[in-house]
Structure formats: C-alpha cells, structure tokens
Design a binder for these strands. Sequence first.
DNA 1: CTAAGGACTTGGCATGAGCCGT
DNA 2: ACGGCTCATGCCAAGTCCTTAG
Length: 585
Amino acid sequence: MLNSTHNVENPIFQKNFFNDFQAIIKKTGGAKDPQGKPIQIKEFSKCDFRTIFEHYEKLRAEKKAMSAAEKKAAKAEKDAAEAPYMYCMWDGRKQKVGNFRVEPPALFRGRGEHPKTGTVKTRVMPEQITINIGKDAPVPAPPEGHRWKEVRHDQEGTWLAMWQENVNGNYKYVMLAANSDVKGQSDYKKFEKARELKKHIDRIRKDYKKGLKDELMVNRQRATAVYLIDQFALRAGNEKGEDEADTVGCCSLKFEHVTLKPPNTVVFDFLGKDSIRYYDEVEVDPQVFKNLKIFKKPPKKEGDEIFDRLTTSALNKHLSSYMPGLTAKVFRTYNASYTMATLLKKMSATGTTPEKVKQYNDANREVAILCNHKRTVAAGHADQMEKLSDRIKGLQYQKWRIKQMILALDPKIKKKKGAAYFELDEDLDMEWIKEHQAFLAEELRQKIRKKFDKENEKRAADGEKEMKAKELEERLKAADELEAKYKRENKTKKVEAEGRGPTVEKFEGQISKIDQRIENMLLQAEDKENNKEVALGTSKLNYIDPRLTVVFSKKFNVPIEKFFSKTMREKFDWAIKSVDEDWEF
DNA sequence: CTAAGGACTTGGCATGAGCCGT
DNA sequence: ACGGCTCATGCCAAGTCCTTAG
C-alpha cells in the first residue's frame, strides 16, 4: 500500500499505524540492526518500507507474466482448494456460501475522516471464531493444533461463522450468498413490506402534516423528521461514537447541516453514509420551514443537534404503530421502487433495444439520485469522453466519404437526394479532418509494422529467412498513398469509389450501418456523461423491486440480461419467475 | 430511558475476467 | 488472436434496527 499516498500521507493514518507497528515490534522481540544489535524505532518518517512494497510488486509482476496456461492452472488449483467451502447444506438443501474466507490481516483504512485509519487489523485465529451449525452435523475441524472459540446450534440466526474484528470491535459474519433461499426470501419480504406501505402512506402523510403543528416539541420534531425521510429519502441517522467518522442522517442532523433561505428553501449540506456528501437545495412545506427555524433557534449553535428530542428508536417505534415492521428505511425502499414504477409506467414501448435500455437506465438514474448514490468521477473520464467523441466524428467522416463515392458513381443523385445530404457534418471542420487523416495514416503504418514483425517472427520460428527492411518500406508506401489520396480529396472535394464492384446500393447499406453505430455511440456518450458521478448499481441491487424490471423486460420485449448480470439474475430468481407483465408494485 | 450487544442490509471502490473492436 | 477497456464481482466498511442489560 505504499503507493496509496492518499492514506500514507494522512497524519492520523501514520500515527495509528506507527503505534501499532511499534507495539508489534516490541512484542515480537524488538528491532535489530544488520549486525544484530537491538535498536529503537522512534520515528515513522525515518522508516523505509519500500523493500516490502517492492516484494509485493515483484509477486504481482510474476503473476502478470504467467503464460495463459500457467494462469489457467493456477486458477484451477485455487478453485479446487476453495471447492469444499463454497456450499453448505441448509435444511437439507445445498446453498451457496457468500464470504467463506476470513478477512486477512491488513491496515484498516475506513472511509472519510476515520479516527482509526491506519490501525493494524490483526489476523483472526480459530480461537476467535464461533461456528454455528446444525446439532447433528459434523463440526468442521479447526486448523491443526487449534480449536474454535465456540460451537453453537442457533436455529434463528442465518450465519455460519462469526468473529469480532479488533479495530472497532465489529462483528463479522459468514453468511449465505445473495442467491440462496434465505437471502431471497428476506429480499422478497423486504419489498413486500415496502409495498404494504402503499396502503398506509396517505394516512401517514396526513398525520405528519398535522403533526408539524403539534404543541409538543417532541411530536413536532418527529413529524418533521418523517417528512424529510419521506420527501428526500434521508436515512434514519443513528447516533455515532467518538471513534467513528463524523457522518449524519436525518435524526442526527446538526445545526450547520441545514441552511434556511426564506421563504421556504432549505439547503442540506452534510456527510452521510460512507462520508458521501449530501447536497441539495429544496423547497419545503412552509410549516417544515418554520419548524426547522424553531429547531435551530438560539441558544442552539453549531455542533448541536436539530432534532434534539428525537432518537431513531423513538421514530421507528412511532412508525411501527402505523404498520408492523415499518421503519425509516422502508421509506427509502418504498419511494425508490415507487419512483421507478411511475417512471416505467410512463414509458412508450417504441424504439430500438438500446433506446429502451437507455430509457430504463434514465429511470434507474433518477432513483439513484433520489437515494444520493454517488461515485467519484473516474480518473480518465474527460479523456474517455474526448475519445468517444473522436470516434463518433470519425464515423461521420467515413460516412461523408461514402456519400461522395456515391456521387462519384452517379452525380445525378445529388439532385434527387438534395445537396444537404452530401454536406459535411457541422461538427467536422477541415482542421479536425486533417488531424484525423494523419491519425488514420499513422494507424495504418502501425498496423503494417506490426504485421511485418509478426510475419518475420513466424519465419524465424519456421527457420525461414526474415524479410528485409526494404520490404517494410515498400509496404509502408500504402500509408503514403493513403495520405496522398486524402490530400487529393481535400483539394478536389471528390472521393473516388472504393471497393470491389461498388454500387450505390452497397454504399447506402454501409451508410445505414454507420448511422446505426453513430446512434448507439451517441446514446452511449450521453449515458456516460450523465452517469459520471451517479452510481446506478446500489439502487438496482437494493432499492428497486426487481419485479418492476422483470415486468418492463417482458412488456417491452427486452431480454432481462440487458438489465441484470448473471449474479443479479441468480439473486433475483424469485422475482424473475414470479411475475407476468400485469404485475404492479 | 440509555448503552451495549448482535445480526442483518446497504455502500463505494479496487480489481480482474471477459468482451469488443480491430 | 490480441490488447484495451468495460463492467461484473468481491471485499469489507458502514449503516439500520432489534434485543438485552442496567
């Protein structure tokens, strides 16, 4: 991780790591110099860990350098070693296990400004691990010379093994994979619960609207919080400890996270789960605005909680009075799925498959934005967009040339199709075209060289004589000719018909193919740009009722594979086989 | 009531397999 | 067949929420 400068330069990371490092050095007999004399290690900045880093770099390089056959063999070996742990028997049925590997030792990183970043996460020993297994099942043997912490026969829990991690004292569980029966059932239950909320939502909304004016401050705070959770899909916001990153949700919002702009605009600006920034400027119900103003009234100041009379458990207790099992997070599921359902319903079934997929993704994106699912813009995003637009332009240019070839075959077509048809696209100018032509020529040269080298390699291998450099030069002339041809075309604005037996029909066929490719790439480009800082995966995986996607797929006749990957199809198997196209959320 | 314990879902991101255009 | 790139997948951290203890 020496290349992970973002972490390594963080002073908290350094301090936490160095404390643990010194303790471990001490515990393992102290440090020695090359002569074997004991020495004290006192300063992090004087330590050079590069040899460790280089060691791992070397291993990486070796792995990368393996031949395809070696890689295949290594993978087969790994698969064989893992095979016994991949599945378990659950009530007599074979089920896939999710995370069957214990987490290896590492430096804890955490997200955001985590006070414990850099701490050494130690190796988990069998003595720390509790096994949960059927009463009559044979207990798997711990590693030689070790024993399990405990063997339990808990019928209620869904975990197979459990341990406590040393950095934060969190529990870690080995559970079944997402495609297992238990996980599928609980997923189904989750969405059914959200659907049930539909029957109560009007009453709840009416109630909290009324509650916004409640005399009792506790109730008024509660109603305001439910309003925010329902309208803006905020998380519940449990209290957090001193030794965790400072993030908030609804109930833990602080004074400085909410700015009021009269008459009724509210600006939210805070770090939510995973220290992801939530920023939104919204108009709210006038009474909500008034309430927030009251909740922020002096002597309240920065650092104080807005909902000081409210806890998540009180809020959830209240919610459960409307409907058993109703909690804050159900609103997120409900509103996400409801939004998706509404958007999908509005769609028309016209267009090509990529267009329908894009429409679906657009709806998916709206849900992701609602849930504030973000990602950092990929490092090469701008470059990638540039490249994509160049490829589109390249196709437009290619199309223009083919059109000129049609004219070369039959100049009379110009009148028939209209002159505009044969004009250059407006985003192509001569400067770009010249650059592009140079690029195409260079590309051709590279190709020729590569082919030449390859043929020579083959000749050498077969014991034949290699071709001379002269031959390469000869071949490279093709690129020069191409350049000359472009030059001529630039001058005369005419393009000779290329290919064997060129006909207008053939060219038109090529053009419509290019048109289709351009269309697809434009969609792709738009999607990419819109998605640069929105993560669609989380909402698709956890919030949008998969049955909505199945219905859309059936109704609009788009294969489900366009929306769900293989693992997702397995996870949502219960949904895929349960609904027809009339199903509604 | 609060705090801690415990079990489960949700979340972003690194990575590596496989896909796609050439 | 190959290399670049995309996207699926695994990883594990960080939430939610229930239960239990005091």
